[in-house]
């Protein structure tokens, strides 16, 4: 099986209120001095084996860049396992 993982985080230049709320909460665990927390998402895509590896990679890159992440406000990393 081919497994793609897309890790998406808000850009550092964009204020992340969810990350900020989590950062505040970290004080409860005794970790008071935290510079920054960013909350994003990870999306997992499973694809059956077979097909043209170059084309699959290219399509996944397009999906990650044009749909799963919004490049205006987010950065992403695409990791693909199981692709020959």
């Amino acid at each position: 099986m081919i497994r793609a993982r897309v890790l998406i985080l808000p850009k550092r230049t964009v204020f992340d209120p969810q990350g900020e709320a989590v950062r505040h909460a970290l004080g409860h665990f005794g970790l008071a001095a935290v510079d920054r927390v960013r909350v994003g998402k990870e999306i997992e895509i499973e694809i059956p084996d077979g097909g043209d590896p170059t084309e699959i990679r290219s399509r996944l890159e397009t999906i990650a860049r044009d749909f799963l992440a919004n490049p205006v406000v987010e950065e992403f990393e695409l990791h693909i396992e199981g692709l020959p």
Binding site: V14, F15, P17, Q18, A21, N70, V72, V73
Partner: peptide
């Protein structure tokens, strides 16, 4: 349209 709409600053 350009830009994006994000979670309100005060959440």
């Amino acid at each position: 349209l350009p830009g994006a709409l994000l979670t309100n600053a005060d959440a």
